[in-house]
Simulated assay, not measured.
Amino acid sequence: MQFGIFSVSDVTTDPTTGETPDDTQRVRSMLTIAQHADQAGLDVFATGEHHNPPFVASSPTTMLGYLAGVTKDIILSTSTTLITTNDPVKIAEDYAMLQVISGGRMDLMMGRGNTGPVYPWFGQDIRQGIPLAIENYALLRRLWEEDVVDWEGNFRTPLRGFTATPRPLDGVPPFVWHGSIRSPEIAEQAAYYSDGFFHNNIFWPMSHTKQMVRFYRQRFEHYGHGPADTAIVGLGGQVFMRKNSQDAWNEFRPYFDNAPVYGHGPSMEDFTATTPLTVGSPQQVIDRYASMREDVGDYQRQLFLIDHAGLPLKTVLEQIDLLAEEVVPVLRKEMEAKRPEHVPANPPSHAERVAAARAKAAEDKAGAPAVS
């Protein structure tokens, strides 16, 4: 199972010091966080995509392309690539380029985004969010899988004899996740294409997550991709840890109480009771996240949000160390011990996808009728 971190890239005032990083400081801190996660041995770093303040991650492939050159092992991903407001042609080219640069050490997560004003900034209508996601992704698949594309749809100009460059690494497109919090249509889309489904349940109760993942698994099996429990699932979550649980509560409370991302709504006690936010000791995080398997089955990727709400960089790096040294090894061992043999432990790697594609090509060639 893969464990990693993701960033929403918020620029938030530290309530304990009154200091607010500027955009440059925030971007550079994200680069430091990703490199530290790689050095600590975490599996994945993912960045969101936002085009409105107070968020700074407007160009994921620029950031991830840089990180591909300065990290060694970590998988580089997105915690949303906006399939609705980005041109599918640009997505096809940008992420194929990232795939080539990283040597296949990447994947990406498609999402619609939840910020209404962004849609008209890019010439789109939020009321068309679902149709945009469906049509744009269908085109993106063709751009990666076909060398020459003729296409016409409802939301962009037609393509005639178009070839996206560079072509995907080894002729195999990147692995794609579809991220959704509340839309069954997106879970359906992930199931239809046999892609991964990522439920970023950081603001939702586990009962809702359980329902969405079950639906995706049922539809995955319905489309003939294999048993429901072999579908590729990822979950989001967020934690704040200290060795002593009460120290964690005391330290994180002012950040929770003042961070716009939490909306100044429920108390921290209520929020931690109803969502995956876990504030406490490493053992409490282990206990909480190990139990999620009971609700969603065996899953392949768990990402944690840890660099938000104005937390200083030093604190975030300490959280990475706690995850890597005390939490992840135990969770990985417990998850692996319970996983049935036929259920994938991880999402498919680039090498595995290349091998599968070549095996299928050989099988198709062997089954083709002889040409006289």
Rank of each mutant, 00 (worst) to 15 (best):
I5H: 03
F6R: 02
F6Y: 12
E19C: 04
T24S: 15
Q25D: 12
V27D: 04
L31P: 00
Q39Y: 01
G41K: 03
V44K: 01
F45C: 11
F45G: 08
P53D: 13
F55T: 13
M63F: 13
L64I: 06
Y66P: 01
Y66K: 00
D73N: 14
I75S: 05
L76W: 06
S77A: 15
T78V: 10
I83M: 14
N86P: 10
V89T: 11
K90V: 12
I91C: 04
E93W: 04
A96W: 03
V100F: 00
V100A: 14
S102G: 02
R112Y: 03
G113I: 07
N114E: 10
T115A: 12
Y119R: 04
W121F: 15
Q124C: 09
Q128F: 04
Y137C: 05
A138P: 07
R141A: 07
L143T: 01
E146Y: 06
W151M: 01
T157A: 13
G161I: 06
G161C: 09
L169I: 03
D170Y: 09
D170V: 05
I181R: 12
Y192S: 09
F198M: 11
N201C: 14
N201F: 06
F203Y: 14
P205N: 10
V213T: 11
R214T: 14
F215I: 04
Y216L: 09
F220T: 03
G226L: 08
G236L: 05
V239H: 00
F240W: 06
K243I: 07
W249R: 14
Y255G: 10
N258D: 14
Y262K: 08
H264W: 10
G265F: 04
D270F: 07
A273T: 09
T274M: 14
T275C: 09
P276Q: 07
P276N: 08
Y289V: 02
S291Q: 11
D295S: 15
Q300M: 06
Q300P: 03
L303A: 09
L311Y: 04
K314P: 07
P329L: 09
M335A: 13
M335P: 00
R353M: 09
A355H: 01
A356R: 10
A359S: 13
A361W: 07
E363M: 05
A366S: 13
G367Y: 03
